[in-house]
Structures are given as C-alpha cells and as structure tokens.
C-alpha cells in the first residue's frame, strides 16, 4: 500500500549539506547524471536552493549556468520552496474537455491563491500539470500523493478540508 500513504515530506535544511554529499557520492561515477542529481537534491531539500546548487556545481564539476539552464527547462524543478502538499491539477486533453479549468478555478477560489503560489499557512502549493495518464478518470487532481478522479468543482472544498482534518502523521 506504499503508493497510498501520505508521507509528509520532511525536507532537509539548506544549511545541512549531508544529504547533498550523500547524493553526490551515489552518482560519482555515472556520466550525464545531472538530472538525477537535481531530482534527488530536490527530493531532499524540497527545491533547488541557490546555495546548494553552487555547492553541487563545484563538487560535481558542472558550470552553474548549465545547472540553472537545466533547472529552468524542466517543469519538475522548482527554485522556490513549496507547501506541505503540492496540488497538481491535470490539464491533459481529456481533463480539459471535462472541465479542468473549472477545477483549477475552484481550487484557487477555495485557497485564495493563484497557480504556482503557496497558501500563506504553507499548506498547499498549486500547479497545473500536463496529462498524468489517467484520462478515464478525468478531471483529475493530485494532492500530495493522492489522486482524486472524476472530480466536480463542488467536491474540491471537502477534499482540501480533509488535509487539514487529518491527525499529524508521525513517520518513523
């Protein structure tokens, strides 16, 4: 049941370089490993912090411009910290036809934020994504690791609320 669990990510502080060093070590011998390096660094720190990127460039032998170029090319990479839950509203064709715009609009309404913004309490960050490949359940929204399908705008409020109601999970 791993997929379903909602692990609240605990990101490392950007002052703690141990996770970065561990990642660098793992990819020491692999050629062309910049993208996995950035992916794992983002997983560890939540986003690609400038200080961490400078360190990564120096230690792994990349030009900082190259790292920044790659980080701004791929939509997966973030240069700013995100909220506890990342909301991804799918805007693939099937979802578009099924009214994904209304879903995004309703999430914006409920949370009082715009796309790519984070709620003031740091709970949610809202993003639009291209097709997540579950078109038969359109429209779809992914909150953290949970996928919500066959959505109606009316259901959004309840779904979002459920992420406040849950008792704080303690991961071991």
């Amino acid at each position: 049941m791993e997929e379903g669990c909602n692990h609240k990510h605990r990101f490392a502080s950007v002052d703690d370089l141990r996770p970065l060093e561990e990642i660098l070590k793992r990819y020491e011998k692999e050629k062309g490993a910049l993208i996995p390096l950035l992916q794992e660094t983002q997983e560890a720190y939540g986003y690609l912090d400038e200080k961490i990127m400078r360190m990564l460039a120096k230690k792994a032998g990349y030009q900082l411009s190259q790292i920044y170029g790659v980080a701004t090319f791929y939509t997966q990479f973030r240069l700013q910290p995100i909220g506890e839950y990342l909301i991804k509203v799918c805007h693939g064709t099937a979802c578009h036809v099924a009214g994904a715009d209304l879903i995004t609009e309703e999430v914006c309404n409920q949370l009082g934020i715009k796309e790519k913004e984070t709620t003031p309490d740091g709970k949610f960050t809202l993003e639009s994504v291209m097709c997540v490949g579950a078109c038969s359940l359109s429209p779809i929204m992914i909150v953290g690791e949970d996928t919500h399908g066959k959505l109606k705008p009316t259901a959004i409020k309840k779904i979002l609320k459920s992420y406040y109601g849950e008792p704080k999970e303690e991961d071991e």
């Binding site: 049941m1 997929e3 379903g4 997540v132 490949g133 579950a134 038969s136 359940l137 779809i140 996928t147 919500h148 399908g149 066959k150």
Partner: peptide, 10 residues
C-alpha cells in the same frame, strides 16, 4: 494500475 488506484483501488 494508476487508473484503478485513482478510482479507489487502495
């Protein structure tokens, strides 16, 4: 699969 899980297979 992803579709099943999204629909509540868990």
């Amino acid at each position: 699969g992803t579709c099943g899980i999204a629909a509540g297979a868990n």
